[in-house]
């Protein structure tokens, strides 16, 4: 039991150190603002973007979700909710759980969009489970976006650098884009009464930061990068032979969101 004693000792020392530095740092912070600007506060994650004030970036961003890596922890959903204060019951991103039994029946669920994680196994599967996996979903950032096509007032649009955004000062809240999106990525925000959806964290990307869901994913199942950068992971994944696909390719929307290891059961 000596080791445990030592551990406690060690922990106590760490704790005191923590308290001291925390207090000191905390009290210092009360007096000296650490600077509101992000420069310096957060290290740049996408090189060469911060400080670029041109309307559109030169980068060609793509998003890749690795279905084979996702553990369904829902960190991404929590981060997303934190970043945007998404009203309950609406989802900018969500994580689906697929269960396939050995009779090839597919069972999918997504309680509260995966926001609370997956803590219970499904109990309604009649046969032994053959395969099970998680599939995170978000805005597909289509190159041929249906939502932009149908918006009657030009409140939702595609930027030249590939982001599809909603102008909440102009959206009339008709809901046509919600009907038109093949991926159900959109919802009507009950607070602003305008259409809302995932933006791939446009405001973060413009600051040289990764989308918040990519930043928090502990298993690197969400990858965001620039196809113009030949050394980027996304470039390598997309340009080299991999099992990679998009959702509902038959819709012809040409998403910029790709899935690594996507199974055919996924809609």
């Amino acid at each position: 039991m000596i080791d445990i004693e030592k551990e406690i000792q060690k922990d106590r020392r760490a704790f005191i150190k923590n308290v001291l530095s925390g207090t000191i740092a905390g009290s210092l912070l009360m007096v000296i603002p650490a600077g509101a600007a992000l420069d310096g506060a957060i290290p740049e994650q996408i090189p060469g973007v911060r400080g670029d004030h041109s309307p559109f970036l030169k980068n060609q961003f793509v998003f890749i979700v690795d279905v084979t890596a996702c553990i369904g922890c829902g960190s991404c959903c929590v981060a997303d909710k934190n970043e945007y204060n998404v009203p309950d019951g609406n989802y900018r991103t969500w994580v689906e759980r697929y269960v396939i039994d050995d009779h090839d029946e597919v069972f999918v669920d997504c309680p509260n969009g995966g926001l609370d994680g997956y803590t219970k196994p499904r109990t309604d599967i009649p046969y032994p489970v053959r395969d099970t996996f998680f599939v995170p979903k978000l805005c597909n950032m289509c190159q041929k976006p249906s939502c932009v096509q149908v918006c009657p007032v030009g409140a939702t649009y595609r930027t030249e650098d590939g982001f599809i955004l909603v102008d909440k000062k102009r959206c009339v809240g008709c809901g046509y884009c919600i009907q038109a999106c093949p991926y159900s990525a959109r919802y009507l925000n009950p607070v602003t009464k305008t259409a809302d959806k995932c933006t791939w964290c446009y405001h973060r990307v413009r600051e040289g930061l990764l989308p918040t869901c990519v930043n928090v994913c502990p298993v690197h199942a969400r990858k965001f990068g620039d196809l113009n950068d030949k050394n980027s992971e996304v470039y390598k994944l997309l340009r080299e032979p991999h099992v990679i696909s998009v959702l509902k390719p038959g819709m012809g929307n040409q998403p910029a969101l790709h899935y690594l290891g996507l199974r055919r059961e996924v809609v």
């Binding site: 029946e105 809901g175 159900s184 009507l188």
Partner: peptide
């Protein structure tokens, strides 16, 4: 659905609704 071929596998085996589809927007 005992034998699942390509199309059948994606057919409605269980009731799953996309989280944003729960609400009927046009009523």
């Amino acid at each position: 659905m005992s034998v699942a071929v390509h199309g059948d596998a994606v057919a409605a085996a269980a009731n799953y609704i996309f989280p944003n589809d729960l609400h009927v927007h046009w009523s």
